[in-house]
Design a protein around this nucleic acid. Sequence first.
DNA 1: AGTCATAACGAACACTGTTCGTATTACGAA
DNA 2: TTCGTAATACGAACAGTGTTCGTTATGACT
Lengths: 247, 247
Amino acid sequence: MAARNSSHGTVSRDQWATRIAALDESPSAPRPRKAPITVERIVEVALRLVEVDGFEALTMRRIATTLQTGPASLYAHVRNKADLDDLLIGELCARVALPTPDPDHWQTQVIDVYGQLRDQFLRYHGISHAALAASPNNLDTFRINEGVFAILLAGGVPAQPAAWAIDAAYLYVSAYSLEVSLRQKPGEDVDGRTLDRDEAIERLQMLPARRFPNMTSHARELTAGEGHERFDFTLGLLFQGITPTTS
Amino acid sequence: MAARNSSHGTVSRDQWATRIAALDESPSAPRPRKAPITVERIVEVALRLVEVDGFEALTMRRIATTLQTGPASLYAHVRNKADLDDLLIGELCARVALPTPDPDHWQTQVIDVYGQLRDQFLRYHGISHAALAASPNNLDTFRINEGVFAILLAGGVPAQPAAWAIDAAYLYVSAYSLEVSLRQKPGEDVDGRTLDRDEAIERLQMLPARRFPNMTSHARELTAGEGHERFDFTLGLLFQGITPTTS
DNA sequence: AGTCATAACGAACACTGTTCGTATTACGAA
DNA sequence: TTCGTAATACGAACAGTGTTCGTTATGACT
C-alpha cells in the first residue's frame, strides 16, 4: 500500500540487488538469469555443509542461505528434512562401486563394499545418524543389498542366511560409523589416536577393580584395534559364520 | 511494580495455589512441604513419558510440566538433555540381570543378556537412539560389558575376540532396537506382523526385476524372521565365530 | 532469630522445521 | 509483441525446541 514500483523503468530495491548479485554468478553459466534451484543442487550443497560442519549443523536455513534464498524455497523440491536425509544417504550409497561377483573372493568383495560405505559415512560426520533413522526403503540402499546379495549367492551362501547377514551388516556399518564419528568429535583430526588410546586405558584402569575385574585387567584388549581393525573383525564374524565351505 | 504482596499475612496468588496443590499430594509422604525434585524423579518421569509417547516426544518442557514446574528447574539436576539421555539408558542398562557365568551355557547366557537389553530398549520407543548417540562411557554400560566379558572368559573365549565381540554386540543391539522401534511406528501394536510382511513382499516384487533380480526372487527370505529370529541369528553369528571349541 | 548457600522458577534468547499467502518469474498463445 | 496463466520462489510468521539469566523462595545451621 505504501510504495508501488510500477512507474516507468524503476525496479524495487530488492530486484536491483538480485540483479547485481546475478552479475557475479558463474560467467560461463548458460543461464545468466538467476540460479535454478534443483534437488541435485540441494543435495550437493547439503553434503558440502555436512562435510564441513557435521550433520548436526545441517539445517534447512543453512542450506537455503547457502543457496541465497529462504528456507521455504526448499520445500518445493523436498518434502521433509527426513526426505532430504534420505536423499543424502541415497547419494552416498549410490557412490559405492559394486564389483561383479567372484565366487573365489566373495568374502573380501563383501568387506570391500561395506568398507566403501563406511568411508562415505565417515567422510560426512554424523550422517550415519540419518542412515539409521531412515528405514532402508531407499532404492540406492536396495542397490547395495542387491549387489551384496549377488556376491553372497555367487559364493554359495544359502539365501536365508545371506538375507539376514545383509541386514545385520548394514545395521552394523551404520552404527559403527556413527560411533566413530561421535568419538572423533572432540579430537582434532586423525592424529592423536594412540594418545586417546592411552587415555582410554588409563580411564578403564581407574575403575574399581572389585566390580570391574575383567575390564580393568583387559583394558588393553578393550581399547585395541588400529584403524578399522574392529570393523573388519566384526564383518568377518558376520560373513564367516554363513560360509558354505568351512575354511 | 504493579502489585506487591508484602502487606500483612497475605500471600501471593501463586503461593496460595501451590499450597493448595500441596494439600492433595501423597498423604503418607513424610514431606508434606512441596515435592522435592531429584534426579531419580526426573528419570522416572522421563521414562514414563517415553513409554507412552516415544523418545521423539521427550522434551525438557514436557518433563517439567509433568513435574509441575518450569524447564529451568531441571538444569539444577541435569547438565544437558544429552546428560539426561545418558541417565535414561543407564537406568535401562541397570535393569539387566547378569547371571553368574556358566562355562557350559555361556552362549545362551550372552544371548539372554542382550535379549534383556533389547527388550528394555523396545519397551521405550526410540530410546536406542540415545543409546547410539551416547558413547558408552556410562557406568551401567560398563557393568553389562563386564558381565558379558566374565561370561565369555568363563567360556574359554580369548580376551581379544571377546572384547571386540562385546563392542559389536552392543552396537548391533542398539541399532536393531532402533530399527524395530521405527518400523513399529506406523503399526498399531504387535499385531499385523504377517500382514506387514505380505505387503513388504509385494513391494519388493514390485521392483524392476532386471536391476534387482535377487531381491525380487528372494523376497521371502528377505522378509522372513518371526519375532526376534533375526536378532538371535545375528548374535549367534557374532559369538559362534569366537567359540574356542568348535561345535 | 538471623544468615546464607542452594534450589526453584519466570521470562527470555537463539534456534529449529514447517506453512501461508503473496510476489515474481518463465513460457506458450493471441 | 503483448498478454495470460501456471509454476516457482520467497518473506514472514507459527509453534516448538534446548538453554541461560536474574530473581525469588526455601530450608538448614549457627
